[in-house]
Structures are given as structure tokens and as C-alpha cells.
């Protein structure tokens, strides 16, 4: 019996087999056992692995205790309480995870030696002491940069509000089911929002700084783009949970669609919207700091400058101020959100 599920199961076994073989050869054998620094790479290697994986997948297909794919797709259901030893597919899954772990350690260059080397420890001691004894002579400069960051985040949130608000109605499934045209508009809106949201604000900052020049404006625009899409998603999810009764009642009075939305939908969502918006401002302050690191202005940029000059006492002060701001924003936004619930 060949159906969609069995095909998926075979593909999973095939991919898992190919992956395990490739990692075993390229990382465990070449890098760790042979210690080859610049290993040759040819596309034949993954192709060969894929071939072996395909063979393994087909073999395992007839041998279901071994097939991870069959188990995942729910085709093979072992009796409850089956001993571990009789479930080879579990060992195979664990093997794949262990291989990934080993490869991960290798690629992130985990080195106990460097972590505990004498010069390394000495450097750590110096920097931690410097960070712990911040230089307060740049306090004013830091404060102004921090204010810049907070306002930048605020403006980004405010500018994004009307766009997110407007878009959220088009991204709410329950409002967009009238006919094919609206359903299509819903799908398109969702798609654009998802694609835009999958691009990190940091990347937006880099792109936009080419457009409007490096500085707070680029950072603000980047935050704005990100806020619009993430708020639109949060808002629209809120709209999807409303009670449709009031909406139906407004339709029944002969109200125009805009009036239906205004009276039938908005009163039900306004408080959650406000709460999300404040939360977003809080998040934007943190993001503005990170965006500052790539030249988006504010306290992040200041941090970057002093770090570049290796002035660790100054960096210590900036870090302290950032921690303070994040804590204050976090605390007050939580309090405000609680109050308006």
C-alpha cells in the first residue's frame, strides 16, 4: 500500500540516513579523527550519502522496527511498554542526535583549553574588574544616548501603530470570509506579513541604513517595519478570538462595514491592543539597543564606540545603564499592562 504517508516515511528515513552518514564522514572522520584542516569538498559526497540513505530507507521500510520515518508518520505503532532494547528506531534517532551534538561542539569551536588558559583568565579578570568599576565621567553622554534610544523606540512604536491597526483587520480570518476576493486578500496579507517578519530588525537596519544613511533614523525605520508586522500579527490573533455576536448585531441594524468594525469589533479588542503596544515599546527599547550596535544610533552605538577603543570602564557604565533601562521598562510595562487588564 503506497500512499502519501508511506512516501513521507521513506523520505524521512532516507534523509536521516544520508544526514548521519554525511556527518559521520565529514565531521567525525575527517575533522576529529584525521584532523584535516582544509578537507576537500565535492558534491559527490552528499550525493553518495543520499544514495546510501535511499538504500537504507528502502531496507528499513521492510524492517519496521528500524524505521524512524514509519514511527514518526504513525504507520508503525509498537505495543505500549515495549522495552527499549527491542526498539532499534530509538537507537537510530539517538545516534542522529548524538552526531548533531558532536558536530555542534566542533563547529562552535568549544575549547576548554582556551576557556581556562592563563592569558584568557587574566583577560577575563581584567575586563570584569573594569566593568565592575564603571567610569562615571561619561554618565551625561551615556544618559543622552539612552534617552535617544528610548525616544527612538517610542516613535517607532507610535508610527507603526496605525499601520499595524489597519493591517490587522485584513489579517484576521474571521473578518475576511465574506467571499473569494476577501479571502484572497487575507492570504496575501498574511503572506506579506510572514515574509517581512521573518527578516530580523537587525537586517532591516542594515538595509535601511543604505537607503537613509547610518543613524537613529535608519534604526527607527527598522524598528518600525518590524513593529508593524509583529503588532499586526498579535492584533489579528486577538481579533480572531472575539465574540462575533456583537458584530452580527451591528450588521443586523443595517450598519456600514466600517461601523460594524468600530462598534462590533473594536470595543472587544482595544485593551489587549493597548497592552500589546506597551509590551512592544518595551521590546523596541531592547531592540533599539542592539540595532545601535550596527550604527542605528543611541546607546548601542555608544557602546560600540567605547568597545572599539577597548575602554572597558566606560563600557561598564554603559552596560549598567542599559541593564537599568531594560529593568525599568520591563517592570513598568508589566505594571501598566496589569492595571489596564
Amino acid at each position: 500500500m503506497i500512499n502519501f504517508k508511506t512516501i513521507k516515511a521513506i523520505l524521512i528515513d532516507c534523509a536521516l540516513g544520508a544526514y548521519s552518514i554525511l556527518v559521520t564522514y565529514k565531521v567525525v572522520y575527517e575533522k576529529l579523527l584525521q584532523d584535516i584542516r582544509y578537507a576537500d569538498f565535492s558534491w559527490n559526497e552528499p550525493l553518495l550519502a543520499l544514495g546510501i540513505g535511499a538504500v537504507l530507507g528502502l531496507v528499513f521500510f521492510g524492517w519496521e522496527g528500524f524505521s524512524v520515518g514509519k514511527r514518526v508518520m504513525g504507520i508503525y505503532n509498537p505495543p505500549f511498554g515495549q522495552p527499549f532494547i527491542k526498539a532499534p528506531y530509538k537507537f537510530l534517532s539517538l545516534l542522529a542526535i548524538a552526531l548533531t551534538f558532536v558536530a555542534g561542539l566542533h563547529y562552535s569551536q568549544v575549547s576548554v583549553y582556551e576557556f581556562l588558559s592563563e592569558s584568557g583568565l587574566e583577560g577575563a579578570r581584567k575586563i570584569f574588574i573594569a566593568l565592575a568599576t564603571p567610569n562615571f565621567s561619561i554618565f551625561e553622554e551615556t544618559m543622552f544616548a539612552a534617552i535617544e534610544t528610548i525616544y527612538m523606540a517610542f516613535i517607532a512604536t507610535v508610527f507603526s501603530l496605525p499601520f499595524a491597526f489597519g493591517l490587522s483587520f485584513f489579517a484576521a480570518r474571521n473578518l475576511m470570509k465574506a467571499n473569494a476576493f476577501w479571502r484572497l486578500l487575507y492570504v496575501v496579507t498574511r503572506f506579506v506579513l510572514n515574509v517581512t517578519r521573518s527578516i530580523e530588525p537587525l537586517v532591516w537596519a542594515i538595509v535601511l541604513s543604505v537607503w537613509v544613511g547610518i543613524g537613529p533614523f535608519a534604526g527607527m525605520l527598522a524598528l518600525c517595519v518590524h513593529s508593524v508586522v509583529s503588532l499586526a500579527k498579535l492584533y489579528s490573533e486577538q481579533i480572531e478570538t472575539i465574540n462575533e455576536g456583537p458584530m452580527e448585531a451591528m450588521i443586523a441594524t443595517g450598519a456600514h462595514p466600517i461601523q460594524v468594525i468600530w462598534y462590533g469589533v473594536v470595543p472587544q479588542i482595544i485593551l489587549p491592543f493597548l497592552s500589546y503596544t506597551i509590551y512592544k515599546w518595551d521590546i523596541n527599547v531592547r531592540m533599539a539597543t542592539v540595532i545601535g550596535l550596527v550604527g542605528g544610533g543611541g546607546i548601542g552605538t555608544l557602546l560600540m564606540q567605547y568597545q572599539g577603543l577597548a575602554k572597558w570602564h566606560e563600557v561598564g557604565l554603559i552596560v549598567m545603564v542599559i541593564a537599568f533601562i531594560v529593568w525599568v521598562m520591563d517592570y513598568s510595562s508589566a505594571k501598566i499592562r496589569e492595571a489596564i487588564k
Binding site: G245, A249, A252, T253, G254, Y263, G264, P267, Q268
Partner: peptide, 15 residues
């Protein structure tokens, strides 16, 4: 619709 009033089981007032 404006000439036809409607009453619902769950009232459907605007909260």
C-alpha cells in the same frame, strides 16, 4: 436591514 430589528439569544450587546 435597518427596517428590521433583531433580538438574539445571547443579547449580543457591545461590551
Amino acid at each position: 436591514r435597518s427596517q428590521i430589528g433583531m433580538i438574539f439569544q445571547h443579547f449580543n450587546l457591545v461590551p
